[in-house]
């Protein structure tokens, strides 16, 4: 969109524009939430899938992971961080890339583009929905883990503050990546097929399903280029004792790297979205 307010006398003043963006972002978020909770299959699978994962994992793998000095943590305690991180990728990246592609194919984006709705409000509504569903999903995973499988939740504000920032930057980076990724999806009907492979691959190599120390080094290198591995690492810091980091992450949690990579991806995905996002269907020019 060409910004050309200078030559137009009827353009609203700057402050009015920002108020307008905020007002309409809230309106879009309301509509997104309403459309979400009125689509039972969407609600069911968004929240059921991670629950299934936790139940199946904690039931099938009921072992423990042993530390260097004979300490141990149960599998549920170990894997809950990965489940939350994988859940975030699913509700942000996967879900946004899919729904935005479908809405573009169905002509909703074109329709909105023909109205005075600020384009940013559309994306803010999407990211707000992804944040809310991710938070509910994480709460469900933690509740089931704690109630049924003896997952110990951290006490005190510091771990929860860390949990919050890892969660928020994780949501931001993966949401924006989902927006940028729609550039590779020509049609809504092919969205799932194009979105699932990177998500599934990264789940396997980022230590969601396996102990991270068991993954071959070159795959670890690939995993460390993407946000999921760092989100898992950040959440493990919250839920696991420090000795786990010795085996898995080379001695320390490296939370400063977690923050750096997730922030870098957030910025990169934002720029990629600005450059590559297409409001039109392919073929419409």
């Amino acid at each position: 969109m060409t910004a050309d307010n200078a030559i137009r006398t009827d353009a609203a003043p700057r402050g009015g524009n920002i108020r307008q963006v905020i007002r309409l972002s809230i309106a879009r978020t309301g509509m997104e939430l309403r459309a979400f909770y009125r689509t039972p299959e969407l609600v069911f699978f968004t929240f059921l899938l991670p629950v299934l994962f936790v139940v199946i994992f904690s039931t099938v793998f009921s072992g423990v992971i042993r530390g260097p000095a004979g300490e141990s943590v149960g599998f549920p305690q170990y894997f809950v961080a990965g489940m939350i991180a994988a859940g975030v990728v699913s509700t942000t990246f996967t879900s946004l890339a899919t729904t935005i592609s479908i809405e573009r194919s169905e002509g909703l984006l074109k329709r909105l583009a023909g109205t005075p709705l600020p384009r940013s409000s559309y994306f803010i509504g999407k990211v707000a929905l992804a944040t809310i569903t991710s938070a509910i999903q994480a709460a469900i995973i933690l509740a089931i883990g704690a109630l049924l499988y003896g997952v110990e939740l951290p006490t005190g504000p510091v771990p929860w503050l860390v949990f919050t920032w890892v969660f928020l930057i994780g949501v931001a980076s993966c949401s924006l990546l989902g927006v940028a990724y729609t550039r590779l999806i020509p049609d809504g009907s092919s969205a799932t097929a194009i979105v699932q492979p990177p998500y599934l691959t990264l789940q396997f190599i980022s230590g969601v399903f396996f102990q991270y120390s068991e993954i071959p080094p070159w795959l670890k290198f690939v995993a460390s280029l993407f946000p999921l591995k760092w989100m898992v690492q950040g959440f493990r810091y919250v839920f696991l004792p420090d000795w786990v980091a010795v085996d898995d992450y080379g001695g320390e949690w490296h939370m400063e790297r977690v923050a750096a990579v997730l922030v870098a991806w957030t910025v990169a995905a934002f720029v990629l979205s600005l450059v590559y996002f297409r409001w039109e269907r392919p073929g419409d020019r």
């Binding site: 169905e106 023909g114 005075p116």
Partner: peptide, 14 residues
């Protein structure tokens, strides 16, 4: 811009 778009109405095919 937005001010112009608020003065037009578009009825789309799809």
């Amino acid at each position: 811009d937005a001010a112009w778009k608020s003065r037009i109405g578009i009825v789309l095919q799809s």
